[in-house]
C-alpha cells in the first residue's frame, strides 16, 4: 500500500467520531410528503373544497391529470431520496416516468378538449406560474436540506428528480385550488411553471448537492 494511503487511513482513524445513521429513503420521502400535505392543508382553509372536488368530477382527463401529478410528486420524491444514498441503482430515476407520462398525457388531452371547445383567448396566466414557483420554493428548500444530509453521488440527477417532485406537488395543489376550470392558457402556464422549477433545480441543485 502506498505510503500516503497509509497516512490517510491513519488520519481518518484519528478523526473518527460516532455517527447517527441516515434515515431510510422511505422515511425521508414520507417526511417531505408530510410537509407538502401540511402546506396543502394550510391552503385548503382558504378555498372551497366542494368546488375543487366538483371540478375533479367534471372530466376524466382532469381526474387523470390530478392523479398523474400526485403520483409523480410521490414517486419523484421517493426516487430522489433513494438516489441520495450511495449503493442505490441509477434506475431509480425512471420510477416517476410512468406517472409523469400519465400526467402529461392527461393534461394534453385536457388542453385538446379545451382547445376544440373554447380555443385560446390569448390571455397570459402569470398567476398560475407564480403560484407553482411560490409553492415549490419552500418544498425545494426542505428537499435540498434533507438530501444534503444523505450523500448524493449523482447530484444533478438527484436535483432534477427533486425539482420534478416539488413542481408536481405544487401543480397538484394548484390543480385542486384552481379558482375555475382550467383553460388552455392555464394548462400551458402550468406546464411552463413545472419546466421552470425542474430546470432551476437541475441547474442550481447540482451544485448545492455536490459532495
Amino acid at each position: 500500500m502506498a505510503h500516503s494511503t497509509e497516512n490517510l487511513i491513519r488520519e481518518l482513524g484519528e478523526g473518527l467520531a460516532p455517527v447517527r445513521r441516515a434515515a431510510a429513503p422511505n422515511r425521508l420521502a414520507l417526511l417531505w410528503l408530510g410537509l407538502a400535505a401540511l402546506i396543502t392543508a394550510g391552503i385548503a382553509v382558504f378555498f372551497d373544497m366542494h368546488a375543487a372536488l366538483a371540478r375533479l368530477d367534471s372530466a376524466a382527463d382532469t381526474r387523470l391529470a390530478a392523479l398523474g401529478s400526485l403520483l409523480t410528486a410521490v414517486l419523484a420524491a421517493k426516487a430522489a431520496f433513494e438516489l441520495a444514498m450511495p449503493g442505490r441503482s441509477r434506475l431509480w430515476a425512471l420510477l416517476p416516468l410512468p406517472a409523469a407520462l400519465l400526467w402529461i398525457g392527461a393534461s394534453g388531452m385536457g388542453c385538446l378538449r379545451q382547445w376544440t371547445t373554447d380555443g385560446w383567448d390569448g390571455s397570459v396566466h402569470s398567476e398560475c406560474l407564480m403560484s407553482i414557483i411560490g409553492i415549490s420554493a419552500p418544498l425545494a428548500v426542505a428537499m435540498i436540506v434533507m438530501l444534503r444530509r444523505a450523500f448524493p453521488l449523482h447530484p444533478v440527477l438527484t436535483a432534477s428528480l427533486a425539482g420534478l417532485a416539488c413542481a408536481a406537488a405544487s401543480a397538484s395543489m394548484l390543480g385542486m385550488f384552481h379558482p375555475a376550470d382550467p383553460v388552455v392558457a392555464d394548462l400551458a402556464f402550468h406546464a411552463l411553471a413545472v419546466a421552470v422549477v425542474t430546470a432551476a433545480m437541475t441547474a442550481s441543485g447540482g451544485r448545492l448537492l455536490q459532495r
Binding site: 481518518l12 478523526g15 447517527r20 441516515a22 450511495p86 449503493g87 450523500f151
Partner: peptide
C-alpha cells in the same frame, strides 16, 4: 467513505 459513512445501511 469517511464523509458518507452515515449512509451505510
Amino acid at each position: 467513505i469517511h464523509r458518507a459513512r452515515h449512509t451505510y445501511d
